[in-house]
Deep mutational scan, measured.
Amino acid sequence: SPEVQIAILTEQINNLNEHLRVHKKDHHSRRGLLKMVGKRRRLLAYLRNKDVARYREIVEKLG
C-alpha cells in the first residue's frame, strides 16, 4: 500500500540524513536521497488525489 511505502521511504530518508551529517562529501548517497524524496513526494501526491483521509492520517503519523 502507498502508506507502507511512504513509511519505509521516510525511515530510509531519516537514516540517510544522519549518514550525510557525518559524511558531508558523500554525493553518491545524496543523489540517492534526492531520488527517495522525489519518490515519496509522488506517492504522497497519489494518495492525496485518491483518498484525502488516508493522506491526512499518514502525514499526521509521520510528521
Rank of each mutant, 00 (worst) to 15 (best):
S1F: 15
S1A: 08
S1Y: 15
S1C: 14
P2T: 13
P2C: 15
P2F: 14
E3I: 06
E3A: 07
V4Q: 12
V4I: 10
Q5C: 10
Q5K: 06
Q5R: 07
Q5P: 03
I6K: 00
I6E: 01
I6T: 01
I6A: 01
A7N: 07
A7D: 05
A7P: 02
I8L: 12
I8G: 03
L9G: 00
L9W: 04
L9F: 02
T10Y: 03
T10C: 06
T10H: 02
T10R: 01
T10P: 00
E11A: 09
E11M: 12
Q12L: 14
Q12E: 06
Q12A: 11
I13E: 00
N14H: 09
N14V: 06
N14W: 06
N15D: 09
L16M: 08
L16E: 02
E18R: 10
E18L: 11
E18K: 10
H19T: 04
H19G: 02
H19Y: 14
H19E: 04
L20C: 05
L20T: 02
L20G: 02
R21Q: 07
R21Y: 04
V22G: 08
V22A: 12
H23C: 11
H23W: 05
H23P: 02
H23K: 04
H23E: 03
K24L: 09
K24Q: 10
K24C: 13
K25I: 07
D26I: 03
D26Y: 04
D26A: 04
H27V: 09
H27G: 07
H27Y: 12
H27D: 08
H27S: 08
H27P: 07
H27N: 10
H27I: 11
H28Y: 08
H28V: 14
H28N: 11
H28M: 11
S29D: 04
S29L: 13
S29W: 06
S29R: 07
R30E: 04
R30T: 05
R31M: 11
G32N: 15
G32D: 14
G32C: 15
G32I: 15
L33S: 01
L33G: 01
L34N: 07
L34P: 01
L34R: 10
L34I: 11
L34S: 07
K35L: 13
K35W: 12
K35A: 12
K35D: 11
M36V: 05
M36D: 01
V37I: 14
V37T: 04
V37P: 00
G38Q: 13
G38P: 00
G38K: 14
G38D: 12
G38I: 15
K39R: 11
K39S: 05
K39D: 09
K39Y: 08
K39N: 04
K39Q: 15
K39M: 13
R40H: 02
R40Q: 04
R40I: 14
R41I: 07
R42W: 08
R42D: 05
L43V: 02
L43W: 04
L44I: 03
L44M: 05
L44H: 00
L44W: 03
L44R: 00
A45F: 06
A45P: 15
A45N: 10
Y46S: 08
Y46I: 13
Y46R: 09
L47M: 04
L47N: 00
L47I: 07
R48I: 04
R48Y: 13
N49A: 13
N49R: 13
K50I: 15
K50V: 15
K50G: 03
K50M: 14
D51T: 01
D51A: 03
D51K: 02
V52Q: 12
V52Y: 15
V52I: 14
V52C: 13
A53S: 10
A53I: 11
A53Q: 12
A53N: 14
R54A: 12
R54L: 14
R54C: 06
Y55L: 02
Y55R: 01
Y55A: 02
Y55F: 08
Y55N: 02
Y55C: 03
R56C: 14
R56Q: 13
E57G: 03
E57T: 05
E57M: 06
I58N: 00
I58F: 05
I58C: 06
I58Q: 03
I58M: 07
I58T: 03
V59F: 05
V59G: 01
E60Y: 06
E60C: 10
E60A: 13
E60N: 09
E60Q: 11
K61G: 08
K61M: 13
K61A: 10
L62C: 06
L62K: 02
L62S: 02
L62I: 11
L62R: 02
G63Y: 15
G63D: 07
